[in-house]
């Protein structure tokens, strides 16, 4: 029963992440939606798969390694893209920008 609850939570998080990427105004806020909702949804769906499957213990460990790698890789790519977009010349729509004060 609990795996279906986890699956529903992951799917809803994924849908709200996609809507956030469509609705938010600039790249940085879109990265917020992409990173958080993707990582949370992917990890909960993989946990649901680990509880649901009846395979051997090594398959469950492999799925756990997949969840760990997603949690490690997704934020890293997110802030690589954020820094690259800032250096590319896209001005963020913000109220205060302390990064532009220090790197004129």
């Amino acid at each position: 029963m609990i795996e279906y609850l986890l699956l529903a939570f992951g799917e809803i998080a994924m849908i709200f992440g996609a809507l956030g990427i469509l609705r938010f105004p600039d790249v940085y806020t879109r990265l917020h939606a992409a990173t958080k909702c993707d990582t949370g949804g992917a990890m909960t769906i993989l946990l649901a798969l680990i509880i649901y499957t009846d395979a051997s213990i090594f398959i469950k460990l492999k799925l756990l390694v997949l969840a760990f790698l997603i949690a490690l890789i997704n934020p890293m790519i997110s802030h690589a893209i954020a820094k690259g977009a800032y250096k590319y010349g896209i001005k963020p729509k913000v109220v205060v920008d302390m990064y532009a004060w220090d790197n004129p």
Binding site: M76, I77, A80, I81, K83, G84, A85, K87, Y88
Partner: peptide
């Protein structure tokens, strides 16, 4: 993703 970010920079 890392290569594309490096390209942007």
């Amino acid at each position: 993703g890392l290569i594309l970010a490096k390209y942007l920079e």
